[in-house]
Design a protein around this nucleic acid. Structure first.
Lengths: 353, 353
DNA sequence: CTGTTAGCGCCTTCAC
DNA sequence: GTGAAGGCGCTAACAG
């Protein structure tokens, strides 16, 4: 191959059009390329004076190691793939922030894979990870990427370390980081009961969602402990969207026997619900109390401000990234981390009848 | 180097622990590696039967080309760096979505660089791009990355194509995509004037922000065209945060002479402002009208629903990504694209006194 | 402590 | 239409 062999000619000085390579630095410093490499990777293995010469040469040449070459040689990309179901969902932005800052500090880059409900995308991200394009994968989507589940089931070790964030992935033996969903939902239910509410409705997230399942179980736990009976009519379907909340609100308006409080399994739905109620002249919390889950930024801003379960989202992201980084370093990690939540009492909940 | 020469031994069948390489496929199909490569890159240059054999072998081997090798060889990474000032800012999520889907469709991956106000991060992202880790950069942060400005100033061509999104970068000769900020702010100001308002206050974004400057000029344009005089006392400092809106609200509460309407240069501030006003018993829009800018998702949900300027955020992301992709393909692109906005009239604005 | 050397896996020119 | 072979830039093993 002679494609660009001309550029290979070894004159002194830097050809202006071309990025500096390790060779250029080596010549400038009067050492071998191996020494340059070592001066960068393990400075202690190089004599101080040589190191200085090399670093000077690097600065003079404006040398930046070529990541593709590095990665081909070392079989490491120093990149992590973060897979999420819907990028525009505001719930993820703070988590992403926590992930990004932690990865960055450890010298890793973050590649975003937005699933967008498309199996084609999912397959390509799986292939992407399988191809060694990334050193690890952080899953925020509640399930493994198509082919990964097969390779895990078949007992062959996953090609890259996987860590699940937010939504536990049942059956998969990968580290999982999540908040205490069940305990939090239980605590909120108990809190509502402690206000005197006897009919506590529950607005569900999408069925089949693991995280949702946990929250629902927490709600049941809470009812039981408060001595309230479970009423199927008080459990309404939803899907975490504002619209689901609004729909649920309309249902309440039409009902004769209204529950005195509605516990929504996320804030978006709670906000939509409140909006529908107040538009119809039903006062929150005087007529109906409403509680949410997540503590998104706008929970504090809506009127009335929403009582909800606070999730430490940034910490969640940090914890997930930290676990993955440890895994990449070959350190052992806990198989499951559960971060505590906190009930934030605001103005959307009041005493029950 | 004998590190893993053992694994290099060429037996038939796939050693289970190792990813398939192009060699494996070539052997399986009984052709050379060059033919495999061609069958993938330019199928028409390979005979149909050979192609079939190769594709079968690829499927059987579960072969996925190694991106690091590809990228080292071709000097292309098929990755784009997206630089943004603050990942947790909900304003960016839909833009990111538009970017991601467009890049994905074109076969590019998206790496996120969250600036987080840290010069260190900025420097590293600049180095990252300079190192050829990515084929192009999409800037959402309103300025060039440190070293980039130098290399552009010094007339050396930028090492990778750059495209600016959202905030124009003055002086930099790179393609810019943005919404009609000035025209939109003018239109909103005229709309407020058309409602009969004579004292239209303006709550600013951070000073020095280019985008903010445009909006402010649009506000001035609007005042002039409506025959209203500019009043320095009606221009208040802000910084795009909810808190700034709340602070501005408190100021209004304390004033004797209140403006009849406040045009906030983003929705967060408008929402904070409304919250502060209603808490103090000032009614929106009966006592004071409030308008925002951006049309974030919650603008439609707050009570009263916010009148604001809608930005086509997803399209913005798409357009930016498309321009960058064209640039990467060597096609010519317009130096500036301005996407139209739309005034969304909701309930936070009413007739002026 | 430093230099020499052999590839990492792929693509592409050149030759047939 | 296909094969042979070199090298993208770097680092790890080995030798000194």
């Amino acid at each position: 191959m002679a494609e660009r062999s001309a550029a290979r000619s070894s004159k002194r000085g830097l050809p202006p059009g071309r990025a500096a390579r390790i060779q250029d630095v080596a010549r400038l410093a009067g050492v071998s390329t191996a020494t340059v490499s070592r001066a960068l990777a393990s400075p202690e293995r190089v004599s101080p004076e040589t190191r200085t010469r090399v670093l000077d040469a690097i600065a003079k040449a404006g040398y930046v190691p070529n990541p593709a070459a590095r990665s081909l040689r070392s079989q490491k990309s120093r990149m992590v793939l973060v897979v999420l179901p819907a990028l525009e969902n505001v719930f993820f932005s703070k988590i992403l922030r926590g992930i990004e800052e932690t990865l960055f500090a450890a010298g890793y880059g973050m590649i975003i894979g937005d699933l967008d409900g498309s199996p084609e995308k999912e397959a390509r991200f799986a292939a992407f990870a399988a191809a060694g394009q990334v050193d690890g994968v952080l899953l925020l989507n509640g399930h493994l990427l198509g082919s990964q589940s097969e390779s895990i089931k078949s007992r062959r070790k996953a090609p890259v370390p996987l860590v699940a964030l937010c939504e536990a992935i049942p059956g998969a033996e990968i580290p999982q980081i999540e908040v205490e969903n069940r305990a939090a939902a239980r605590a909120m239910t108990l809190y509502l009961a402690s206000l005197g509410h006897r009919s506590i409705a529950y607005l569900c997230g999408p069925s089949g969602n693991v995280l949702e399942h946990e929250r629902f179980r927490g709600y049941c736990d809470g009812l039981r402990e408060a001595g309230l009976s479970f009423d199927r009519d008080l459990v309404w379907p939803g899907d975490y969207t504002l619209e689901a909340g609004i729909r649920a609100g309309h249902c309440i308006v039409e009902r004769k026997r209204r529950p005195s409080t509605v516990f929504c399994s996320n804030d978006e739905m709670a906000i939509g619900l409140m909006r529908a109620l107040t538009s119809a002249g039903i006062r929150v919390p005087q007529d109906v109390s409403v509680a949410g889950f997540d503590d998104i930024e706008f929970a504090a801003i809506v009127d009335p401000a929403l009582t909800t379960v606070h999730q430490p989202r940034r910490e969640l992201g940090r914890a997930g990234a930290e676990v993955l980084i440890k895994l990449l370093r070959g350190e052992t990690v806990p198989s499951r981390i559960r971060l505590p939540t906190e009930i934030i009492v605001r103005d959307s909940t009041g005493p029950g009848a």
